[in-house]
């Protein structure tokens, strides 16, 4: 075995060089991870929402399978729409043994700031096949107005 003098070991000149290299690697990793997340735009607060805009209306959709309409509470204040609710465990008889358990039950609350002014009186919500759809009309001031061109 060759004996190396302590000061001649690689990296001894700057003992922090290796840490710096690791830190840069981690930075690179986390940047990539965040960037990838950004592209898909996955939300982490339940429920995940899709928001669509049409000329005069705004539609918000959320997948809420197994949530009863009675257990949903939707409110609107200022420019924030809040969806609260809970998912009850379904009835599964007695004396069962689980093979797989992936469906979660519990509470959720999600607030979303609307990007456009809306008319609060027109908010309507419905559940169909486990998908919640909330529709609302834009406020009169932001609805597109058609300008007629007069021929002279």
């Amino acid at each position: 075995m060759a004996i190396i003098r302590f000061t001649e070991r690689p990296g001894a000149a700057n003992p922090w060089a290796e840490f710096e290299r690791i830190r840069q690697g981690l930075d690179h990793l986390s940047r990539n991870f965040l960037a990838r997340d950004d592209v898909h735009g996955h939300g982490t607060v339940f429920p995940a929402l899709n928001v669509y805009e049409e000329n005069e209306t705004l539609t918000i959709k959320a997948e809420l399978p197994g949530v009863k309409a009675d257990n949903l509470d939707i409110s609107f204040e200022g420019d924030t729409l809040t969806i609260k609710g809970k998912r009850d465990p379904y009835h599964n008889g007695e004396k069962v043994s689980y093979h797989r358990r992936e469906i979660e039950t519990g509470n959720f609350s999600r607030g979303v700031t609307l990007p456009i002014k809306i008319d609060a009186d027109t908010i309507a919500a419905g559940m169909r096949n486990g998908v919640l759809t909330i529709t609302m009309e834009k406020a009169a001031s932001v609805k597109p107005r058609k300008v007629n061109v007069l021929a002279e």
């Binding site: 809420l64 599964n92 008889g93 004396k95 043994s97 093979h99 992936e102 096949n129 486990g130």
Partner: peptide, 21 residues
């Protein structure tokens, strides 16, 4: 996502399928 459970007489599969009629 599914739950699968078994009782004495049957096996039940529960699956989340939002948006499917």
């Amino acid at each position: 996502a599914v739950d699968i459970f078994e009782s004495e007489g049957e096996v039940t599969v529960v699956a989340e399928m939002p948006g499917v009629a």
